[in-house]
Computed example of a mutant assay.
Amino acid sequence: MPLSRARIGTVLVGGAMSVTLAALAYPSMLGLQHVSSNGARVIASTPYGPLTEADRNFVVFVRSAGLWEYPSGQLALKKGTTKAVRTAGQHLVIGHAALDASCRKIAPELGITLPNQPTPQQQGFLNKLTSDSGKQFDSDLANILRVTHGSIFSSIAKIRATTENTLVRQLAEQANNVVLDHIRQMEATGLVNFDQVNFQETTPPKLPSPQVTPPVPPAGQPVVVLTPPPGVPTDGIPTGPPVGAPSASPTGG
């Protein structure tokens, strides 16, 4: 069943975010269609280089994406009707567990509060996949995830090219590898409707800020941890270079 524009939409990244380092929160973040003109504004100085609004938004986005794409992968492992769909689910789970570990590692270093829930829009994607079954599930998984990953792909490259923060740069490199792998996995299902996917990516709906903003977790709430479920093979699944590798050193260059 083809996906309508209203059912997919765009994903959160690189939007406006009004926050100070002391607040450790992100009360307002807009979607991809509302990129902040202040994205280059430095909001904190860190041992790893200056941290801009765009940098902070990117770390929050990577975490938020995993909070719905990881469980989507778990659903694919259980409900996928073809080997290709189940394999795609395996890659989603392993890839986002790796990215999540990196986000949780660098967030305290950079003074960033991580969400524990996805955005309302992302939760809507997950709800749709949860209610799906059979071939409808396979089709919706492949197309929704292909749109979301395709929409963010160029934004990852922009962060990698512009950030002066070492840890954010490393996360962008890791995310680039993982997202490209997930794009390939969705296409390998043979279910992607490229005409509709391209339309969704180039003409995303304009959504209000609350729909594309992950809820701020209550103070003191433990950070949700995404880990690969027991028995899910990890061999041969790209997870990208880990953030904070031994070769890395604090620098603003």
Score class of each variant (00 low, 15 high):
residue 244 G to R: 01
residue 164 E to H: 15
residue 99 L to N: 05
residue 99 L to V: 00
residue 13 V to I: 10
residue 176 N to V: 01
residue 106 I to Q: 04
residue 155 S to Q: 13
residue 50 P to T: 05
residue 136 Q to K: 14
residue 123 Q to L: 14
residue 57 N to Y: 06
residue 148 T to W: 00
residue 40 A to F: 10
residue 148 T to P: 00
residue 229 P to H: 05
residue 96 H to L: 12
residue 149 H to C: 05
residue 216 V to P: 01
residue 116 N to H: 02
residue 93 V to E: 05
residue 253 G to H: 13
residue 147 V to Y: 01
residue 119 T to R: 05
residue 63 R to V: 06
residue 87 T to E: 15
residue 144 I to M: 07
residue 198 N to I: 04
residue 182 H to K: 08
residue 169 R to K: 15
residue 7 R to D: 11
residue 175 A to M: 09
residue 62 V to P: 03
residue 67 L to M: 04
residue 84 A to S: 12
residue 223 V to F: 11
residue 37 S to M: 13
residue 127 N to K: 11
residue 196 Q to P: 01
residue 107 A to I: 00
residue 134 G to V: 04
residue 184 R to F: 10
residue 9 G to M: 03
residue 188 A to K: 07
residue 130 T to L: 13
residue 226 L to G: 04
residue 127 N to Q: 12
residue 85 V to M: 12
residue 226 L to H: 02
residue 84 A to N: 03
residue 28 S to L: 14
residue 101 A to W: 06
residue 148 T to D: 11
residue 148 T to S: 14
residue 231 G to Y: 03
residue 46 T to G: 05
residue 49 G to A: 02
residue 240 G to M: 07
residue 108 P to A: 08
residue 94 I to H: 10
residue 37 S to G: 15
residue 245 A to L: 09
residue 174 Q to V: 00
residue 237 I to N: 04
residue 232 V to A: 09
residue 179 V to D: 07
residue 139 S to V: 13
residue 196 Q to I: 09
residue 11 V to R: 03
residue 90 Q to I: 00
residue 135 K to H: 12
residue 101 A to F: 03
